Simulated scan of single mutants.
Amino acid sequence: MISVLNKVTENILVGVFFVMTLSVVWQVMSRYLFNISASWTEELARFCLMWLAVLGAAYITGKRGHIEIDYFFDKFSPSQKRRLDYFVETLILIFAVVILIIGGAYLMYMTFYLEQKSPALQVPLGLVYCILPISGALMVVYTIDYMKQIKNINYSINES
């Protein structure tokens, strides 16, 4: 299931990056070749960048590629490493649920309720912000999956 989730997320990220690239290229071309400034391209690129950042963070969480400082971690015993790993994953889980899922869903709800639309594209901002709870849910799935694997990890003292 995780591999399918990774593949779908990768494809969405590539698609969003492609749309953002086309938007920026069109903005530059229209401005310098045709002397026309299309305001919607800047807004679309900004929304794509937001989606790339938030969805990319969830994807990196699943790939275990986020930044970590392991200087002190390597000095712990294997049982301490396992406990610390659980603690860090619990913090990630709390962040994903409270900030991304609950906070993101509330932001999404409020923008739909207030019928806010983006100035240039006129899309409901709730659609733009829907990536927050989606990414939060992905982080929860990835984190729970990793927490199930922690008990099988060999935390040897000489591990580098």
Rank of each mutant, 00 (worst) to 15 (best):
I131M: 06
D74P: 00
G126W: 10
S77V: 11
V88Y: 10
K81T: 12
Q80L: 12
G104F: 02
Y109K: 08
D85C: 09
Q149G: 09
L127A: 10
A137P: 00
L132F: 04
I134W: 00
S79N: 12
S79C: 09
I101W: 00
M108W: 04
T143Y: 07
T111H: 06
S77M: 08
D85F: 05
G136I: 03
H66C: 11
I99V: 15
G104C: 05
F112C: 11
R82P: 01
L91D: 02
L114Y: 07
M110Y: 06
V128P: 03
S135N: 09
E89G: 05
Y129V: 08
A105Y: 10
A96G: 04
L100N: 02
L93G: 12
G62Y: 02
V123C: 07
G103C: 12
R83D: 09
Y146M: 05
D145K: 03
Y109W: 08
V141F: 14
Q122F: 03
Y142S: 07
V97R: 03
V123Y: 11
D70E: 14
Q149K: 13
I69L: 12
I94P: 00
L84S: 13
I92H: 02
I60M: 10
G136D: 03
M147N: 10
V140H: 05
F73S: 07
Y86N: 14
D70A: 12
R83H: 06
T90E: 00
P133D: 02
Y146R: 13
L84F: 11
I131T: 04
I99Q: 08
M147F: 05
M110H: 07
A105Q: 06
V128Y: 03
I150D: 01
L138H: 02
D74L: 13
I92R: 03
F73Q: 08
L91T: 07
S77G: 13
I134M: 02
I67F: 13
Y109C: 07
D74N: 15
L121Y: 01
K148T: 12
G103N: 09
V88H: 09
D70F: 04
N152M: 09
L121G: 11
F72S: 07
Y142L: 09
P119D: 13
I69Y: 07
T61N: 10
A120K: 03
Y146K: 11
M139N: 02
K151E: 15
L127I: 05
M147R: 04
V98P: 00
K75D: 05
V88Q: 08
N152Q: 14
S77H: 09
F112V: 12
Q80D: 13
L91M: 11
I101D: 00
Y109N: 06
V97K: 01
Y129P: 01
N152T: 12
T143K: 02
I67D: 04
L93T: 10
H66S: 13
F76V: 08
S79L: 10
I134F: 10
T90Q: 01
T143D: 09
K81C: 12
I150H: 04
V140Q: 05
L114I: 08
G126P: 04
P78F: 08
I144V: 15
I92F: 03
T111S: 15
